[in-house]
């Protein structure tokens, strides 16, 4: 049976005539059980798709917020195996919300690519974003096709029209437009610049296009949702975890932490749902 949660989700969003909310949290942040609780509660708070970060010791494309969350998660003992188990747990009650693992190549390479794709497929992972695996390094392409786990590629403001078709040809699931040159969670996206990039990208692909890096507030999310197919919010959510961690250790406080994160997810979701659609091009699914 084809693994088509991503396709179905974007199809449904298209019918609803709105953009989707993609939330990013680092797996196992701030600890394993809180991380699982957060993951489990994301869909009912309004996350349409879920990105789960695979923590890495050397996150070269990430800003201070995600760097710190990766360190917390690694300290809590998270491993790729445990992340797949988290997804498996999630799948026991949710079989429609797409889960995309996002991270760097080394943990997957070390796990063994073949074994990883097998296990990820079984766990219910739908897509992968490997930040340091550009289209030129296409060694996972065959596995991605045979195991029906989408390889989701990034398009950057520096990507020119010569590279664009090379990326869109290899991509599956959706495309992820990086809204600015830089690391995660530092600058804010320039709405005008991002919007201008869309007609060019749409010429080369019928896949949905999400926008991420640099979207912090509900207001920004709403603006981007007017023309994008999905909006990714990561560092802004992770920083809520960070803020709530100061001096806490009780279960009650962890619950409050989850509630603060989920409340912001729901704010973002409401903002995105309220965004008027200015685009007349959309995904063709």
């Amino acid at each position: 049976m084809a693994n088509d949660r991503i396709k179905n989700k974007f199809g449904q969003l298209s019918k609803e005539g709105r953009a989707g909310l993609i939330t990013f949290l680092t797996a196992g942040d701030p600890d394993m059980s809180t991380g699982q609780n957060l993951l489990n509660s994301l869909p009912k708070s309004g996350a349409d798709l879920i990105e789960l970060g695979i923590p890495f010791s050397d996150p070269m494309a990430d800003g201070p917020v995600i760097q710190a969350s990766s360190q917390r998660a690694l300290k809590s003992g998270i491993t790729l195996n445990k992340i797949l188990y988290m997804v498996l747990q999630f799948r026991t009650f949710d079989n429609t919300t797409p889960i995309i693992l996002m991270g760097y190549y080394n943990p997957i390479y070390r796990y063994g690519a073949q074994k990883f794709f097998d296990d990820a497929r079984k766990a219910g992972v739908d897509g992968l974003i490997i930040v340091d695996l550009p289209v030129e390094e296409d060694e996972l392409l065959e596995l991605s096709k045979s195991k029906e786990i989408d390889l989701i590629y990034l398009i950057a403001p520096t990507t020119d029209e010569r590279r664009l078709p090379i990326i869109t040809r290899q991509a599956s699931g959706f495309l992820y437009y990086v809204s600015m040159t830089g690391i995660t969670g530092t600058r804010s996206a320039d709405r005008m610049e991002v919007e201008e990039a869309f007609p060019i990208m749409r010429q080369y692909t019928e896949l949905p296009i999400a926008v991420g890096f640099g979207i912090k507030t509900a207001k920004q999310a709403k603006e981007i949702a007017m023309f994008a197919d999905a909006v990714v919010v990561g560092s802004a959510l992770v920083s809520i975890i960070e803020k709530n961690l100061e001096g806490i250790n009780s279960k009650v406080d962890k619950k409050r932490l989850c509630n603060s994160v989920l409340k912001q997810v729901s704010n973002l979701s409401k903002a995105i749902k309220a965004a008027p659609k200015s685009r007349n091009v959309g995904q063709s699914v």
């Binding site: 340091d132 695996l133 030129e136 390094e137 950057a156 520096t158 590279r163």
Partner: peptide, 20 residues
């Protein structure tokens, strides 16, 4: 031509850096 020495080397960088 892709910068590989056997299985080693290559260009494992974020898309933002690939063009440069």
């Amino acid at each position: 031509e892709r910068g590989h020495f056997g299985i080693y080397g290559g260009r494992y960088v974020a898309e933002t850096l690939m063009p440069v």
